[in-house]
């Protein structure tokens, strides 16, 4: 496999319109949660990733040390790990495969025969969710689109280019350049999360505690 593809999630540009959440469902023909979840005192909805919710923006409001308010938005979805722990955890090597062209981590029908808890626990980001038939689901990097030289639905839809998608080397260069620019713009703590290990790179401007980063506790 060549270097494959990657995403850059630039939180300095995201304003949480959540077209990514909808565009994902539109392209991948995923229904809304049924019943529709209620409001729980937040804009953030649905409450969790699911078999039909593969991308979710997580909101957090906190005050910085200088008392200015930070309302941050960060994407939660499969990171498409370079060396995917979920694949290593699978009993059957065909259940979870790595797409040759893109590097996308893909769950097949065979995941219905895998241990849900084992696969989910293996994921450092707690991403996989089980559907009604037992199969596990998550972001597929819209590999069908990518194979046809189109970007994933979320990346195409994003109004402010907070989701960039492309060849991994180009995305890495873009991420590094953007990181420097953000640092120079008054955010010395800016960071790219898990730069070497995942295909979904997340650029944070503020310190990580200001974001609702969904990780296994």
């Amino acid at each position: 496999m060549a270097d494959g593809k990657s995403f850059l999630i630039d939180t300095t540009k995201c304003f949480a319109c959540r077209s990514c959440q909808v565009a994902c469902k539109q392209w991948n023909e995923l229904p809304a949660e049924d019943p529709v979840p209620t409001n729980r005192g937040s804009y953030e909805n649905p409450p969790d990733l699911s078999a039909s919710c593969w991308v979710k923006i997580q909101f957090k409001e906190t005050e910085r040390s200088d008392e200015s308010l930070a309302w941050t938005f960060v994407r939660n979805s499969c990171r498409h790990c370079i060396d995917a722990p979920c694949k290593q955890a699978a009993e059957n090597p065909d259940s979870i495969t790595i797409d040759e062209q893109t590097g996308a981590v893909l769950f097949g029908e065979g995941t219905a025969s895998e241990s849900y808890s084992k696969i989910r626990l293996a994921c450092p980001f707690d991403i996989p969710r089980q559907g009604a038939g037992g199969q596990l689901f998550k972001c597929v990097m819209c590999y069908d689109r990518v194979h046809n030289d189109e970007v994933p639905a979320c990346a195409k839809a994003c109004p402010s280019d907070a989701i960039e998608f492309g060849d991994r080397d180009e995305i890495l260069s873009m991420a590094d350049a953007r990181l420097e620019a953000v640092k120079a713009d008054g955010f010395p703590d800016a960071v790219i999360l898990d730069r070497r290990d995942v295909r979904l790179l997340v650029l944070l401007a503020d310190e990580a505690s200001l974001y609702s980063l969904h990780t296994r506790d």
Partner: peptide, 12 residues
């Protein structure tokens, strides 16, 4: 539109 109701289901 169910996809939008999912994002903002109710009055707040």
């Amino acid at each position: 539109v169910p996809w939008l109701n999912e994002l903002q289901p109710d009055m707040w």
